[in-house]
């Protein structure tokens, strides 16, 4: 294990133990929780533009679908969070597939605009279907996440009103999504997506059914967005249609771009950086007497500059498709044993 890796593990461990420190600030825990919600979204969105090379401008639509699914199921049926997460994911995937199947045949530009229209329709629906969503008034009184372990011990029934348990729930979800992303990236599925991104015609000639794999990507991406929404609903305990406007899609896209399209760890860093920047800018802008929305000027500029000067994002592609997979490590050894000049294999490994 090298120094860089140990350092990352150390930072992750420090962040994870922070809420247990008695002097920990609620505000920082809150910001970290928010950053982790965006980590889920950024990882999920990354599948579509990052792995498949398609611009998705309506990601917030799936986030909203997940959030309202969770909120309504909680209020009307009192379902447990642990049941709701898979249901929200399924609902997200369903809408992703319904939207993707007819529109992913089209060129990327059309797809981008369709996703945008879709997310605007979601907001309009949430605003206007008052019988279901209470419209602009929002959906208050969503129960917090509960953990029912009474089957183990009668006293073990927990309600997560506090910031700390929520922090750990979302950390768990981030870990889960990260795990799934890494496994997908280094698999037949991930390779098919990369092929589509690099050259659709060559991908088809390799036997990849392009439309199918794009729809799968879009549905999985939507499902992850919906999981993020489901947590958000139970964490904030209040939802309103305003939370799911285009700005959010843009922000998540900006995180993905900043971290490098197709780079999973980059998306995590992008989320941390932009959430922190957002907090800082909110302070700075209000002290300058500017409206808080104007922070998006910075985000817009970041995106333009990155596309111009560092299209691969700020962080080098840390892993190109599962270098740490035992199969590849084994192959590398075998190649080295063939007496190939050392430089060549080392070049390849970096």
């Amino acid at each position: 294990m090298n120094i860089g890796k140990s350092l990352i593990l150390l930072v992750v461990a420090a962040v994870l133990t922070y809420p247990l420190v008695p002097q920990s600030s609620d505000y920082i825990i809150h910001v970290m929780t928010l950053a982790m919600v965006y980590m889920i979204l950024a990882m999920g969105l990354n599948i579509v533009p990052g792995f498949c090379g398609l611009l998705d401008l309506g990601y917030v639509g799936f986030y909203g679908i997940g959030a309202y699914t969770a909120g309504l199921l909680t209020i009307h049926y009192g379902l447990s969070f642990w049941v709701i997460v898979p249901l929200a994911a399924l609902n997200g995937a369903l809408w992703g597939a319904l939207l993707g199947a007819p529109t992913l045949r089209l060129t990327g530009d059309y797809f981008a605009i369709v996703t945008f229209g879709f997310s605007e329709l979601v907001v309009l629906f949430l605003t206007n279907e008052i019988w279901l969503t209470r419209g602009p008034l929002g959906l208050p009184g969503i129960q917090p996440i509960t953990l029912n372990l009474t089957w183990l011990n009668d006293a073990w029934y927990f309600e997560f009103y506090d910031k700390t348990p929520n922090f750990y729930v979302v950390a768990l979800l981030v870990g889960l999504v990260f795990f799934i992303m890494r496994r997908m990236e280094d698999s037949r599925l991930g390779r098919a997506w990369y092929a589509i991104r690099e050259d659709p015609l060559a991908a088809a000639s390799c036997g990849v059914n392009i439309l199918n794999y794009k729809v799968i990507a879009f549905a999985i991406s939507a499902a992850i967005g919906a999981v993020g929404g489901a947590f958000y609903a139970r964490w904030s305990m209040f939802l309103s249609p305003d939370m799911f406007k285009f700005w959010e899609s843009f922000l998540v896209l900006c995180m993905v771009v900043l971290g490098g399209l197709g780079n999973i760890k980059g998306a995590l860093l992008g989320a941390v950086i932009l959430v922190s920047l957002g907090e800082v800018l909110r302070e700075v802008l209000s002290s300058l007497g500017l409206p808080p929305e104007s922070r998006f000027m910075a985000y817009g500029l970041i995106m333009v500059l990155i596309m111009r000067f560092k299209p691969a994002g700020f962080f080098p592609a840390i892993a190109s498709s599962g270098r740490s997979n035992p199969l590849l490590i084994d192959l590398q050894k075998r190649l080295a044993a063939r007496n190939v000049p050392k430089e060549e294999t080392r070049d390849a490994a970096t």
């Binding site: 990369y194 092929a195 690099e198 050259d199 015609l201 060559a202 991908a203 190109s320 498709s321 390849a348």
Partner: peptide
Amino acid sequence: IRLFSALT
């Protein structure tokens, strides 16, 4: 030539 040039 139409390789997936960013990949190995």
